[in-house]
Simulated assay, not measured.
Amino acid sequence: MIWFISGGARSGKSTYAENKAAELYEEAERKNGAVNLIYAATARASDEEMAERIRRHRAGRPEIWQTIEVPWDLRQVSEAGGKGDVLLVDCLTVWLNNMLFYRKETRTSKLTDIIGGLIQAAKEKEQQLLFVSNDVNEDLPSSDRMIADYTYKLEAVHRFIVSQADRAVQVNAGLPLDWKGEAG
């Protein structure tokens, strides 16, 4: 099953996603036995502040989580897991920033191909895959060309994932709103 979970900054989307992934993991473990719960972190420790933030996030997750760092190649997420594992990618906005500004990958088709490869691999391995991303299009389009371009690319990535997803959920003030798929 493919999930897309979005929300504004500090909306509770990551907490919701982590809790949902843990639920899916427990369910998969009951049904299938040994499975893994994998947290794919897209952030890079680009400075001391970010390194500290990454340390806090890791320390705050229960030991059951296996953390991998994937600032660029999201295909590694599925490769890190086995059949039936639960994979959480947090977050797409940081990943897109990495791709645009560090890898200089500006083609939307290449970005969606990378994500499509991960989705396909997860389906083949019967993995549960949850994507977390920020809602950045809730305001008027920016007059700054770079910001507008980033926003348009992120929205294209969002649309692509939602077209492939079984569930799409938006979190606001900690409350989930189901946009696609059954509430549960």
Rank of each mutant, 00 (worst) to 15 (best):
F131H: 02
K110P: 00
I161W: 00
D113H: 05
D113A: 12
D144H: 11
R53L: 04
E26N: 11
D149C: 10
E18I: 04
I147M: 15
A41M: 07
G12N: 14
I38D: 01
R61N: 08
V157N: 00
E155N: 12
E69Y: 09
G7H: 10
S46L: 12
L24N: 05
K180N: 13
P62C: 10
L154D: 05
V162N: 07
R75P: 00
W3Y: 15
I2H: 05
I5D: 07
L96R: 06
Q120Y: 05
D135N: 07
L154P: 07
D144Q: 11
I119Y: 00
I64W: 08
I54K: 01
V77Y: 01
I38P: 03
V162R: 08
L175K: 12
D144I: 11
E49C: 02
E29H: 05
I119S: 02
L74K: 07
I147F: 14
L140I: 15
R167G: 01
V77K: 02
V157D: 00
I2Q: 06
W72D: 11
R61C: 03
I38E: 03
W3Q: 05
I54H: 01
V89K: 00
A173H: 13
S109M: 08
I114D: 14
E69G: 07
W95L: 06
L154V: 08
A121H: 06
M99S: 05
H158I: 07
E124W: 03
A165G: 04
F101S: 09
T67M: 09
N98Y: 09
I147N: 14
Q120M: 02
E29S: 11
A17F: 06
V35D: 00
M1H: 13
K83Q: 15
V157G: 00
V136K: 03
A59V: 03
K153F: 09
E105C: 09
V94M: 11
P141Y: 14
E124Y: 01
I64M: 10
